[in-house]
Design a protein around this nucleic acid. Structure first.
Length: 560
RNA sequence: UACCCCGUGGUGUAACGGUAACACAGCGCCCUUUGGAGGCGUUAUUCUUGGUUCGAAUCCAAGCGGGGUAGCCA
């Protein structure tokens, strides 16, 4: 099993529609799109959407456009465009052709055409310039009342709209509104605003414009312009769909026209997903930037060590529906472990070193013992691990007064050192304040792994490194960022930040780990999966714990 | 409040009028030189009430519950 996570093509209600439209000949080539607003970094919820839209294009031989939905100059920045494209390419690379979507497109590149469409709508008597304030507009809409400017002659509307574009009027003084039905049951049909005045510099069009289209106008027509067949968005836009369809009909656009479909956005336990909250975490320095490995941003997940293929497998596992549920973070963890168990090479690393002296093992002797790189993959080969008189084991693998069912080292007890010998703890050395500083043990020389007399069983097997040959490395142990299942369910989500979400230790690593590369994932035996962080230098490795191993002992220990 | 959408084990999904299944989580056992992985088993599900039908998770109606929308944000 070297092919990973190439799951069978998933099926869901949207793919069903796509397949049907192809079957009936309604469409001959599928075009989807992923339309982020460049006002923040992409998160795992966007990954779900990317996998859906690119997935459909990929499976049905179509294309998927990445389109910056940049109609609000006051919120959008080029930095975000760059991060978004980096994330999208990373996520789809090796799975769908990058050129499936090509270079990023921009709604702002269509501003001229969108403006012309608006002029057309005015000419058809289906839009008018309104002079009411934002507050008045809101109130009238709530009351279902018509604006007193609603019946302006088309020519006056045309003139006013042109002068809006010309910059004659200050921000907020006028809007262009669709003339639909001020009393419609669906509030989005109560003469929605199509254009507003914003004397602001735009990240992509500079100072060319001072009127900017609203989402519904821009998005619908951008879909049409690009020949989108299936415009897939999240549930909160469901009530916009009648407006989407109205716009296409009002302009009497020739078919085929796009159709909008909605699915439930991703909700995950123990995290927050809204851009507003993520940006707060960054700005208030509660995390170290957008790509902090504790963030559920795509860049954060990438830095943490999650692979694109694992993220895609996750998107596949959770499915697509209209039910707005809450997915357990355990599903993400499981998906990552599932892949890494098959692909990650094993290494011995001691996180919290406790010295062990083997009293009956010769001083100065070094044995090169053989270790399996990956028990799940024979092709991963073997390596040598040096063994000597002084070792480090993890402090958690020794207890002076252990609870029942503790299989590791204890005074007078025995344990197997992985790939090496069985040792017995004879003596516990402590400092003046009673802390254990060293263990004196004896080796059963007949118990060497792979040897003729190695068959003796002991209950526990622990990892270790040779003190003389070990290399130091910084290891960043990440845990979930929030302690509450739903941090934003009530109160201030920041009050649920996990104070132990990051623990930094200096670990002792076996020599073979020195050759590690950033692309590879490693399992530190019995501890978890780890990835080299970009903070690493030629002289110092920095490791991120992507996810722990499943730990049934922790559960057992909690019980007693 | 109005309008729209959605209700299948604890969680996420499947079953497309014909035996309610899969994954995660949980529990138990087996195996294990990772308390990992793996294997086996197990707990537990169609919101309610009517209707249509030989037959309903599926279609219809009402109720109940949950979510969304009511920015000159997207």
């Amino acid at each position: 099993m070297t092919e990973l996570a190439v799951a069978p093509a998933p099926s869901d209600f949207i793919r069903d529609v796509v397949a049907e439209d192809l079957r009936t000949g309604k469409h001959t080539r599928i075009v989807t799109r992923f339309p982020p607003e460049p006002n923040g970094y992409l998160h795992i919820g966007h990954a779900k959407s990317i996998c859906l839209n690119f997935g459909i294009a990929h499976e049905f031989n179509g294309i998927c456009n990445v389109r910056m939905d940049d109609t609000n100059p006051t919120k959008e920045e080029t930095e975000y465009v760059d991060s978004i494209m980096a994330d999208v390419y990373w996520l789809i690379d090796g799975w769908a052709d990058k050129n499936l979507g090509g270079a990023p497109l921009y709604t702002s590149d269509y501003f001229d055409r969108l403006y012309q469409f608006a002029v057309e709508l005015i000419a058809k008597g289906k839009a008018y310039v309104d002079d009411m304030t934002a507050e008045e507009t809101d109130e009238f809409r709530r009351l279902g009342k018509a604006s007193r400017f609603r019946n302006r002659p088309a020519e006056e509307n045309r003139d006013l709209f042109e002068r809006m574009k010309g910059g004659e009027f200050p921000d907020g003084t006028r809007t262009l509104r669709a003339k639909i039905d001020v009393n419609a049951p669906n509030v989005w049909l109560r003469d929605p605003v199509l254009y507003r005045i914003r004397h602001a510099s735009h990240h992509h069009t500079g100072d060319k414009w001072c009127v900017y289209p609203m989402y519904d106008w821009a998005h619908t027509l951008s879909d049409y312009i690009e020949g989108i067949t299936h415009s897939v968005c999240t549930l909160e836009f469901e009530v916009h769909r009648p407006l989407y369809d109205w716009i296409l009909q009002a302009l009497e656009l020739s078919p085929p026209v796009p159709h909008q479909y909605e699915f439930a956005r991703l909700n995950l336990t123990y995290t927050v997903m809204s851009k507003r909250k993520l940006i707060q975490l960054v700005n208030e320095k509660l995390v170290n930037g957008w790509d902090d490995p504790r963030m559920l941003t795509i860049s954060g997940l990438r830095r943490r060590g999650v692979t694109a293929s694992a993220l895609r497998a996750f998107a596949y596992n959770i499915g697509i529906t209209k039910y707005p549920g809450m997915t357990d973070m355990a599903v993400l963890d499981h998906t990552i472990r599932d892949e890494f168990n098959r692909t990650a090479e094993r290494r011995l690393v001691v996180l919290h070193p406790l010295k062990v002296l083997l009293t009956n093992y010769p001083e100065g002797k070094v044995e090169e013992l053989e270790a399996v790189n990956n028990p799940e993959d024979e092709n991963a080969g073997r390596r040598k691990v040096p063994f000597s008189r002084e070792l480090f084991i993890d402090a958690a693998d020794f207890m002076e007064t252990p609870p029942p069912k503790y299989f590791r080292l204890k005074p007078g007890g025995e344990v197997r050192l992985k790939y090496a010998y069985i040792i017995k703890c004879d003596e516990v050395v402590k400092d003046s304040s009673g802390n254990v500083t060293e263990l004196r043990c004896t080796v059963d020389l007949d118990s060497k792994s792979g040897g003729a007399t190695s068959n003796r069983k002991v209950k526990g097997t622990i990892h270790w490194v040779s003190a003389a040959k070990a290399n130091d490395a910084e290891v960043r142990l990440y845990d979930r960022l929030f302690t509450a299942v739903e941090p934003d369910a009530s109160g201030d989500f920041k009050s649920f930040i996990n104070p132990h979400s990051l623990d930094v230790v200096t670990a002792k690593c076996e020599p073979a780990l020195a050759d590690a590369t950033p692309e590879k994932r490693y399992q530190f035996e019995r501890l978890g999966y780890f990835t080299l962080d970009p903070d690493s230098t030629a002289t110092k490795q920095v490791w991120n714990r992507t996810v722990t191993l499943k730990d049934t002992w922790a559960k057992e220990a909690k019980r007693s």
